[in-house]
Nucleic acid binder design. Structure first.
Lengths: 267, 267
DNA sequence: GAACGCAGTTGAACATGTTCAGGCAGAACC
DNA sequence: GGTTCTGCCTGAACATGTTCAACTGCGTTC
């Protein structure tokens, strides 16, 4: 669940059974920044080597303190070569984040395989993220910063085709579909919820980034507290009294949240 | 309501009647980055000159494209001098953001002076923010990025003593207190809500930053839609059926949100 | 097998944020 | 009046992200 930098293969399929339907193969078509279409095996190796070296140094010294020169030297390549594979320092974060997302999805699916209670499944999925990301808490601030930049193609918010987000949303679809709750809800809601749950994760991530407690215990507690509540809200949404509110909320999500993250509203 | 860069005076009292109780005088004590205690009048002028030049250039060319050398040259000072007042380029954003917050509070109070309907007051407050920030939408990404960095003292989330946040929260306390809704709610909720409303603003800001529509029309629509809904939720919270959920929500906020932004939970 | 093309690679040059040793002027102190 | 101190200011030097013209080696073409 950890030691991510040591796992090999840049593509998402490294982890066991992580083939989320929406996860694109390897690098996908010409993402700005990363190279498109790795041509040779050697190329792939060099890319991985640079990424892993960078991850290691980021962990050791933090993001700002790690210079591109240091990464290049440590990896035994030239600075220019590092830029050949990652057109900016930022994109190293992208490479890292993509990997982490795939690993998270795999780990979460594993862990919740034998649980059908929705709240539990959700908690497992979120906790799994915290565990996967734990080794990188120190420099996490940095990729959070980057994610918050709309002009950057790294942002999971603005960039519709962000593969990492697709993978994560798919995971949350599983969280819901594999639970005893799903059949009880109307189809429309089932369609909406995965994205909302992904937003829940984003909130947790935000909380986590700012969390300075030992082992991010506070965030873990936040997850333990917020997941049953989320489950309860979803559950209650079935009752008549809550109809108007639910309708409002649905409308808000359909009209304003989903389109923003690149989905056409369900008509 | 706009043309912020042209208004004078670095302190928050430039706008009319912006004296929010919690707003500290001028620069406060030794904020890292800005200088502490402006000693002379000339000093204050130079600082303002640099800040205003920077704001203008940021608007004209964007944040990244504006170099510190350009700012210095344009302002007729040396690079070193700019760094004397703002210890990093980032801190220029801080200076800007502080000002904008004060101006926003003043403008919002003005606009909602004659309205007692809670939803309307909230909508006015949020729309006022959008208007105040409008001229800076282009480079807003940047200060949002900065705000998202927990290691930076600029973050309104992590830095408890952030004067801008205090000012904003105070504004939302007014939004509530000046409405017909406040007397109907229990004291505890009234205590909690201003911070929650501030979070609402933060969500709007997040939305706004990523909004690429003309005149950020989409965000404005989002405000129009979400404020009555927020009002309705708060209103309904008084009824018995919603008690358990409200209690959960309160607990979550008290235990996890408020402490994080530097308030001790109400016992 | 010679010419060519192109992915991969290099390192020096460049741009820009940041630092620093010092200079200048006015106030304070003797 | 001279000395010293200190706030304000300077610009060259430095650190680091990024670019680019050129080089290498391997496969393809003729």
């Amino acid at each position: 669940m950890d030691d991510l930098a040591a796992t090999n293969g840049t593509d998402g399929t490294s982890g066991a059974g992580a083939e989320a339907p929406a996860a694109p193969a390897a690098d996908g078509p010409a993402l700005p920044g990363g190279r498109a279409q790795p041509k040779t095996d050697k190329s792939e190796q060099t890319r991985a080597l640079i990424l892993e070296t960078a991850m290691r140094l980021f962990q050791e010294r933090g993001y700002e303190k790690t210079t591109m020169r240091a990464i290049a030297t440590e990896a035994g390549v030239s600075v220019g070569n590092a830029y050949y594979y990652f057109s900016a320092k930022e994109f190293l974060i992208q490479g890292f984040y993509d990997r982490m997302t795939y690993d998270h999805a795999a780990d979460a699916r594993n862990r919740m395989a034998h649980t059908r209670d929705f709240a539990e499944r959700l908690e497992i999925a979120l906790t799994s993220w915290l565990d996967t990301a734990a080794p990188y808490h120190e420099f996490a601030a940095q990729f959070f910063r980057t994610a918050a930049d709309p002009s950057s193609s790294l942002s999971p918010f603005s960039n519709e085709s962000h593969p990492a987000r697709a993978t994560a949303v798919e995971l949350f679809r599983d969280v819901l579909q594999g639970s005893e709750l799903a059949p009880k809800l109307d189809a429309e809601l089932v369609e909406l919820l995965p994205d909302v749950l992904w937003l829940h994760l984003m909130v947790v991530v935000l909380y986590w980034v700012f969390d300075r407690t030992e082992d991010t215990e506070r965030t873990r507690e936040f997850v333990r507290r917020s997941t049953p509540m989320a489950a309860r809200v979803i559950n209650l949404s079935r009752y008549r009294v809550f109809r108007p509110i639910v309708r409002d909320a649905k409308g808000l999500i359909q009209d304003f949240i989903l389109p923003t993250i690149g989905k056409t509203a369900v008509k």
